[in-house]
Nucleic acid binder design. Structure first.
Lengths: 248, 248
DNA sequence: GTGTTTTTTGACGACAAGTCAATAATTGAC
DNA sequence: GTCAATTATTGACTTGTCGTCAAAAAACAC
């Protein structure tokens, strides 16, 4: 039994090593540059050995995506419990999203590859479920904050909308902003000079529109957001480094 | 000169034919299934001939994307001029977005492929510019509606935000919703049962949050949106069929 | 009709995915 | 310690695609 575990561990160690080698290739050179031959060559193993770990490169991408999503969930977990009122906890989650995009850019890029049709549909049900599970946990965390707000009488969600559908709006706006920023290099030439600031304003206005108490006007809100980013950044960085240390 | 034009036309006719053949492959079977060999075989030409028209398949995708973006612009042009007050014109544009995603799903899928890193970066500057130009025109149309609202005193955009940054928020939320809907087949299991309705509510609430006059409560807004979709759909369908007829 | 230019063709080299029979290493029974 | 059985590793091989290019065919000019 102990034998089996040692072997098991060795295999897992090498699986992790494959991911470590594959990650910078995927992130910096793109999916097409990530070839099994190249991973094998860089690790000084034969190609067949890599195929013993992953049936195709799409599966490597999804394995990396699971890592990324788990980091995201960690950040969300931390922020969902941060501060006092639900509304400021929601704001903290927004800060986590900004942090993730800006400071965990590898993870963010990997998440985009994961959402690629051809990558997703080729990958195993099992890893798809892991991703979905993480996604569900992130959703639950944020919806939990919304539920708290409703429970405390600070928010009324209109017209039979579920808390999850409420969250979906915020998810769509932050996600959309990030994808557009990443895929439209010329946003500034379109007249959008500071997308992050714009989205902060939109989020604040949206929550005010729902009359989520305490309602905060945009000016003070932006200052609060800056302050919160300053407070949270070192703690999130700590979580991030913990996460990657845990994977070695 | 007339000779040259005839030849020119023949070349263009075949270029269009290539796109006609490539489109269903890309839309229904994905980018990897779209190979030059296959296009050549289906057209009963040699591969080299296809390469005379497009230097690689990424360029085919971008050519299709230009078609798609032009259709989008047409729909936007029509809707930006529809109805009376700026706020209802903005609503019409929202309806156009829904129409585009639901009834021009080919075009919508193509747009997603176009935003793929590896596709975009490989395509020619020239076609990238055509896409950007269309994107810019769409942005201008929508920002124009915002400018009208500001000019008529019905909207105040806060804190030195440009109208384009205002539009960016709406773009992000609709775009984000569409991508998430397309790439998360399990939205419903996350508790999001009617993403379109949710986004309609969010958009209405957001505009109300900005105090864009006339402020409409969510209930009547949803009814209005349904009515507008009913009124606009046949007209948009007409534009759509015109568009594709124009390409033959 | 003939020489020139343009277009089309498909064989070819390069490269990556994924397979698998042969080879090497590990294990555990005795 | 030996050896048969099991397990892991290897890299040559098949298949398929990209993108090129010299040769063949077609179109054209005169």
């Amino acid at each position: 039994m102990a034998e089996l575990t040692r072997k098991q561990r060795e295999i897992e160690r090498r699986t992790a090593e494959i991911l470590r080698v594959a990650k910078p290739i995927l992130v910096h050179e793109g999916f097409h540059a990530l070839s099994m031959d190249r991973v094998a060559a860089e690790m000084e193993y034969a190609k067949g050995t890599i195929y013993n770990h992953f049936p195709h490169k799409e599966e490597i991408v999804l394995a990396l995506a699971v890592e990324s999503m788990e980091l995201r969930r960690k950040l969300f977990e931390f922020c969902a419990a941060w501060g006092g009122k639900p509304r400021s906890r929601m704001m903290a989650i927004g800060t986590a999203c900004e942090f993730y995009t800006q400071h965990c850019s590898d993870a963010f890029v990997i998440e985009q590859w994961m959402r690629n049709h051809s990558v997703w549909e080729k990958s195993s049900q099992q890893r798809q479920n892991l991703v979905r599970q993480c996604e569900g946990q992130c959703m639950s965390l944020v919806a939990g904050v919304v539920r708290d707000a409703i429970g405390q009488g600070e928010l009324v969600v209109p017209l039979g909308m579920t808390p999850e559908e409420f969250v979906f709006g915020l998810w769509a706006i932050t996600f959309g902003c990030q994808i557009l920023t990443a895929s439209s290099p010329s946003l500034s030439s379109l007249g959008v000079h500071d997308p992050t600031r714009a989205i902060r304003i939109h989020c604040a206005t949206l929550l005010n529109g729902f009359d989520w108490q305490p309602v905060t006007t945009v000016g003070p809100y932006l200052e609060q957001a800056d302050q919160m980013a300053k407070d949270l950044t070192p703690r999130l960085q700590h979580l991030q480094s913990q996460h990657y240390r845990g994977l070695e």
